[in-house]
Design a protein around this nucleic acid. Sequence first.
RNA 1: GGCCCCUUCAUCUAAUGGUUAGGAUACGGCCCUUUCAAGGCCGCGAUAUGGGUUCGAAUCCCAUAGGGGUCACCA
Length: 551
Amino acid sequence: MHNAPPPLRDAAAFRNHQPMTKPARTRVGPSPTGDPHVGTAYMSLFDRAVADKTGGKFVLRIEDTDRNRYVADSEKQIVESLEWLGLTPDEGPDIGGDFGPYRQSERLPLYKEAAEQLISAGKAYKCFCTADRLATLRKIQQAEKSKRMGYDGLCRGLSAEEVQAKEASGEEYVVRLKMPREGEIEVHDLFRGTLKFIADEQQDAVMLKSDGFPTYHLAMAVDDHAMQITNVIRAEEWLPSTPIHFELYRAFGWEPPVFSHMPLLRNNDKSKISKRKNPTSLLWYRDAGFLPEALRNFLCLMGFSMPNDQEIFTYGEFLREFELSKVNVGGPIFDLKKLHWMNGEYIRALAPAELEKRLVEYVKLLVGREKEFADLPADQLPTEQFLSEFEQKRRQRSRVLAELAPTMMTAYDTNPKLMLPIIPLIRERMHTLGEAADYLPMFFTNEFTYTPDDFVAKKCTLDEAKKALNEMRSIVDATDFNDPEAAHKQLDDQSRAKAEELGMKLGPFLGPIRMAITGSKVSPPLMESMLVLGKDETLKRIDNAIQKLGA
RNA sequence: GGCCCCUUCAUCUAAUGGUUAGGAUACGGCCCUUUCAAGGCCGCGAUAUGGGUUCGAAUCCCAUAGGGGUCACCA
């Protein structure tokens, strides 16, 4: 028997009459089953925004009801990642709050009680079907290409005596929700309005598992109600099970919160974002040297855009313009290329001292982790070219920095002023902190692996290289490094003069010098680099090269 | 396959019945230049298709196509 549904508020009407003015309570409910997921951050961002916009609260709830997939470190990493991104919750397991505990594994009695309440009200029933039976059932349904998949409701008709007998004989059972068999189930979504589902096509979902733990469905409804959550912001993949949730709310006689089903972040091929095809771990973004504020900003763009076309903005600016109802529901492809660009913008906007600080922190993060960054075999790399190349380079860079770290940190500890002058030279060239690996080592080591061939270029023969090095040695030797500005001018002027004398363009002339000073054909500006290194070190490096070339 | 959601440049998106359909990334070119960048300028490039409604449709309606999600004692 199924009573007529009580009138539910219409989502559109609700939206119009109650814009986000009342303090909202939002929550994110990650399950601690692995690395913190970028999708969790994405949802948290909008949860945080709705809470902040309305002066409400954002709650972190750990949904650890799956004992099989539980990963011990996961919760800690989730908490740290959210903090890293500046999306710190107001209530949560390690913060506390008035609605705790915030771990579902610590709320088991609540779910049990709720399940019993449903059973005694005739809204749920005990199901003794074995996993085997369900598997067989599924197979048959698939073979028959049955329209109606899922549980067939066998135990729904069990008499009280039958239930008692089975229980007495120790048979395990789950608790299933009795879904209506007739009519439609209306659900409401902030973006999509009222959605109707055929009731008979819904199955009797499990509420309580045989191990006594609740499923997501029960735990979510019980907790959201108990924690007075007003807005459920979750991924679109939940849309098909929303009828269960609305039915559950009705069974309890509770008012459902406002549901907003956010679009799914996508891979390049439009499928739901996944580890194989796209980095999904927040730890990955941190390890690759993305700035949290850049990632956060980028995530804002996945579905939301500013009225003035502004793409780079602070959280405060975002909040001023943000409205949940303006979010785009088409699934956005997570374009790492654009994040890469944006991260570069953020790096360049950082004050040198701040970038210095971030860089030092970043290098410390990589210390001792060389093994983690071994090259990946081709078949384990993402299929998309940019992702694949970036991942391989990222590993190489992390290794370089991890290996450089001891030397670098020692030098830095000895002379804390060492780092700051380097920053302006490398910052224009970086998109991620990891890319510092391409430019940083030369400032801390002069042990280069170059060969004479490396000094030769199209417009610079070996003979010319030797001459250039000797000329530059004289120039440097004659320059007073104590006045950097004057020194720079002198180095520059003299180089030009000598290059002309040798009948060379400045670029080719500086090629061998660059190799001698930086050990690479690509480097930060040469004169500036020499000034940072100092006269002695510069001369030493030129001498090393001259020796190497036997000039 | 059933059910559900979605559909503007390659990608993120703007334009809520009247715009030469705008911006950003990426890509290409030029400038700057000491290599590499960064920066500046220019270019390429989209309303999925077909029907309606309307003086007028990217915008409203219907169909088709395409994409995605979901059909667990996982969340």
